[in-house]
């Protein structure tokens, strides 16, 4: 077997293994595997309606993943992204509730507010990291808890539904705030996501900023000695990721829920980390991988509706796939030691 064949084999192997795990899990709970796959397909991409639903969940995930590409390039684990999504949604909700105006004015205003919210929360984690020497994983985690607490407080407190304080969410926004749809497809949200992915692609590939950011991530000290202001680049990475996360939060609030709910982040921040790991930090791959992930997640709800299974099986498959991909990447890197940098191995000893 030559080298090329072996490489392809190692790329396909995780998919085959993940599928095998899926079949085993389904058999373990007495579910028919073929019918289950069929349900997932029909429930996610198979019909126009379901495709529209899946694409609407794809938007926040791909936005989060695009942002994480930037922070990972700088060698940062932006665990605070969940909080950045939440604060983006909170500021967008505030504008949606308080600012009057027609759709052409209020929708851009909510998007801008969401971005500002995400940037503030991202910069907070950045300042803790850069000036406080606080590990960004724990600083980000703390900020996630604060953001969730703030969202819950606003929902049961100042923004409670008329008469009842419940954690089910605020009142629905007025119709002008809702992101526009055509035939069920939220075209504006989709456009924003596509533009964001393309922008990040060119930022990382074709600009001096992207190149220097990668230098900061690859070797912070060398980059500093070469005259790159590493602190400012790390802060910029947090701010850019926060902006994209804030957009994701805005889409969650104004295009999906049409209100603020406690679980507004939808876990897309953490899931975005899995997407970027599976994409091996390559921007071009995050769009298809995110679509596949969302097909699994949205399709799995059919398994719970029709077969009474727990819909977490979608998450299990996503995790298994990424885990096997990392392990296969490690095996491959061991074979080609030093020749190529592969998923997961790139961040070693950061």
């Amino acid at each position: 077997m030559n080298d090329r064949m072996r490489r392809i084999g190692l790329a396909v192997l995780p998919i085959v293994l993940a599928a095998a795990v899926a079949v085993l899990l389904l058999l373990a709970v007495d579910a028919p595997p073929l019918r289950s796959f069929n349900l997932v397909w029909n429930g996610s991409l198979g019909t126009t309606n379901k495709l529209a639903d899946t694409l609407l969940t794809w938007v926040p995930l791909v936005l989060a993943a695009a942002g994480l590409i930037i922070t990972f390039a700088a060698g940062l684990w932006n665990i605070g992204i969940e909080g950045q999504i939440v604060i983006g949604a909170i500021l967008a909700t505030w504008v949606a509730r308080e600012v009057p105006g027609e759709a052409y004015f209020i929708i851009p205003a909510t998007l801008l507010a969401g971005m500002i919210g995400g940037i503030i929360w991202g910069l907070l984690a950045g300042v803790l990291r850069v000036y406080g020497k606080v590990n960004e994983i724990f600083g980000g985690l703390g900020l996630d808890f604060v953001a969730t607490g703030l969202a819950v407080y606003l929902i049961i407190g100042p923004w409670q539904r008329a008469g009842v304080a419940s954690t089910s969410g605020t009142d629905l926004f007025r119709a002008e705030v809702w992101m526009p749809e055509v035939g069920g497809f939220s075209w504006l949200a989709l456009t924003i996501a596509v533009i964001a992915v393309i922008a990040v692609f060119f930022l990382m590939r074709g600009t001096a900023f992207g190149l220097k950011l990668k230098a900061v991530g690859a070797n912070n000290r060398s980059a500093f000695l070469l005259g790159i202001p590493t602190d400012r680049y790390m802060l910029a990475a947090f701010a850019l990721c926060g902006a994209l996360a804030g957009l994701a939060g805005t889409v969650q609030a104004t295009a999906f829920h049409h209100k603020l709910v406690p679980s507004i982040s939808g876990g897309y921040g953490f899931l975005g980390i899995l997407v970027v790991l599976l994409a091996a930090f390559r921007t071009a791959w995050i769009a298809p991988i995110a679509l596949f992930f969302m097909a699994l997640s949205v399709g799995s709800t059919q398994l719970s509706l029709r077969l009474g299974l727990d819909s977490a099986i979608g998450g299990v498959l996503q995790g298994v796939l990424v885990l096997f991909a990392l392990l296969a990447g490690g095996v491959q890197a061991k074979r080609h030691l030093g020749k190529r940098r592969v998923a997961g191995a790139t961040l070693v000893e950061s």
Partner: peptide
Amino acid sequence: HLNQIAVGFVLTLLAADLASF
């Protein structure tokens, strides 16, 4: 020689979903 943070993070989400399922 994989990154411990990356593998650990994936296992965090995977194990939690497996527990739900």
